[in-house]
Design a protein around this nucleic acid. Structure first.
Lengths: 217, 217, 217, 217
DNA sequence: AATGAATGAGCATTCATTCAT
DNA sequence: TATGAATGAATGCTCATTCAT
């Protein structure tokens, strides 16, 4: 699980506050404009750092992007870690997950947008690395929870745990995008009405009914 | 449901074979590089048409993109129309949908990629238009099927039809991307193993189990 | 005084009404945008003629421009012919000229603008031809009038008739531009106040005082 | 009289020698080809500067043009300043002006051409700004001189000072163009003979006779 | 003779990356 | 280590001109 760094050693040595400024400026730029359209000079300006410095920290634009993605994934992992550790029953855990997604997506719009941008980068290299960094954790969380549910007798045994985890994540991932990304938000509204993004409890309730029934014995 | 054209009248008048060449070259370019990075001169070259001609057919790059999206959506709608009309039982319909997605995604990789690219365009205007063109049809198909299922007594009545349709589409949409887009394919493999993309029947079976159970009385 | 044609014979053979449409559309385009920025396809559209036809009538853009200039000069000559023939005393003639300029410039803004555009074309070939077509007539009119004035004892003899004619035309030419061209109009206002372009009698009176005194014995 | 800058601060900070190269290359390009037809890449090449740099100094082509005009006007103002300050009698001043025009026009052909180009830009915005920058100074100089002449008893009082200044400038402006611009030079020759542009003293003498008589009591 | 679709060279502008200070 | 001016290849779009019908 040791992932390679995409930045030069220098980036680790600068003042944390400066590093933070760079990460934050770059996250915004990449999230709002996508990889190709992001502008390095712009990032430098927003972060109040010289372009020259950025190129001291990162080999090139791509490495900068990778680094930023990496940081984003790390913050999402922080969010997930708590879920991982909690010892709840599967259905409680699902509710917990959905509510966490709702809160996190609203508070970290840029990071979710960035994640969304990343999912449509057309680059097999990027893709497998991103996917690995991003999904292996959630895959493990969901599968573990399902397997525990099976042992506890809460989840049917005739379903493939890994595949069920995948299906759950399909739902969760789109839900997350529905709170932070233009297209997905519109889509949610088209399906279920303009006010749905604000009706958190309704969303939780409906998801729970669906998933509970899908998994239960 | 009559959607505005984004191309000039001239584009309707050229030889169908030429139109096809342009659509195909542009679809590939936009699907593989995204809107910003797509290169008009490249498209012209690939389509064996002059740039000047392209600008006789389309006001500008954006209109070209919109037209291409429009065509993509139209072919997806053709695929969906048959599903719409079939009078199957909801569960048969779900199987039908999944198998159609599998086949279509493999045969029309570029169109699915383009759809994926479109979902992460960070442009509220585009977003709502795309979403409307793309999703209103599937939303209707799924909701209608669910409502019929309720009447037929096959589907539980305690679930919101529109929201259930949304959840189904979350699953289907990601499934579709999993067959055509780098990130999503990697993700499927991480969740369920490297050979899953080839195991069509397994995918159908697992999805069916999950969804059937989620919806049934 | 026989000036070469700049158009093909075909242009002489088309319906006069069509020819008129072309001249009028091209005059507007060249006058408003200058030679380089004028758009042939635009002219064709405005004149309701095909581009192909235009190229049947004119070898190229430059010849079209020359033809249009030629027509403009011809209409200005019509205006001047009457002045030429009148047998007035020099000072009456000057007043006559100024009033004619005022009226003509307001009624034929585009032609005057075109004349102005022409005077700053940086092309020695054009220049000498234009200048010859345009100025030889006025030069003759003014010089003749001055010489007659000398004979009649109204005009001092210690001044070079040709040079005096040139100085008069400096005044008249700028006056003409002041009624039709942006820069010159602003300039007139800066010198003499914002309402001067509307005070025709004032302009006539002041010009007359100046010129009368400049020429008189 | 403080006029806004049209360039970025960076342009003020570069080496004067480099700035000079850019101004000179751009002046030539705009003077010889007009605004629309001037080529930025060409200017960069001639000035031995990268295009990128030019765009660091100027927002866009138009601002570059405005800056160049501004510089041109500034050099013309330098020429005029000396006239402004001299305390000569009006008729001496007129001679002084004409001789200055003759010398300046021959030494600064490009700047005069540029001024000429500027006078036929068909853009009301440009026009009023240019006119203001360019003419308000000469207007003041001429009018002041005329008014002083009136007080000194050298100039008739029955003529409007501002309008007389305008008429003088009509003569001077065309005279200036006659030394530097194709059309105007041809015109001068047509009126007064091919050798006139070289006969400086003759021109001075004739202008003086005309103007002196026009203004005198 | 008339049409107007097609051509493709040409130009304004952007931006990742370098390097002298 | 940090800076930010400089670079120049790359790209969207225009338009004079041609030519098949």
């Amino acid at each position: 699980m040791d992932l390679q760094k995409h930045h030069k050693a220098t980036f680790d040595n600068i003042a944390p506050e400066k590093r933070e400024r760079i990460i934050s400026a770059a996250t915004a730029e990449f999230a709002l404009k996508g990889f190709e359209n992001a502008n390095i000079n712009n990032i430098a300006k927003k972060a109040d750092v010289s372009v020259g410095s950025l190129y001291k920290y990162f080999e090139n634009k791509q490495d900068m992007f990778l680094t930023i993605i990496h940081y984003s994934i790390a913050t999402m992992e922080d969010m997930l870690n708590e879920l991982l550790e909690s010892d709840e029953d599967i259905l409680l855990k699902v509710e917990h997950i959905i509510r966490t997604i709702q809160q996190y997506s609203k508070e970290n719009v840029l990071i979710v947008k960035l994640y969304n941008v990343m999912t449509s980068e057309n680059n097999p290299r990027f893709a497998s690395q991103f996917a690995f960094e991003m999904e292996s954790m959630t895959a493990r969380i969901y599968r573990t929870a399902i397997e525990r549910g099976k042992k506890a007798g809460d989840v049917r045994e005739d379903i493939d745990s890994a595949f069920a985890a995948y299906l759950l994540d399909n739902i969760f991932m789109n839900l997350q995008f529905s709170y932070a990304c233009d297209y997905y938000r519109e889509r949610l509204k088209i399906y279920t009405g303009n006010d749905t993004p604000e009706k958190d409890d309704f969303v939780v309730e409906q998801c729970l009914k669906f998933i509970k029934s899908a998994l239960k014995k």
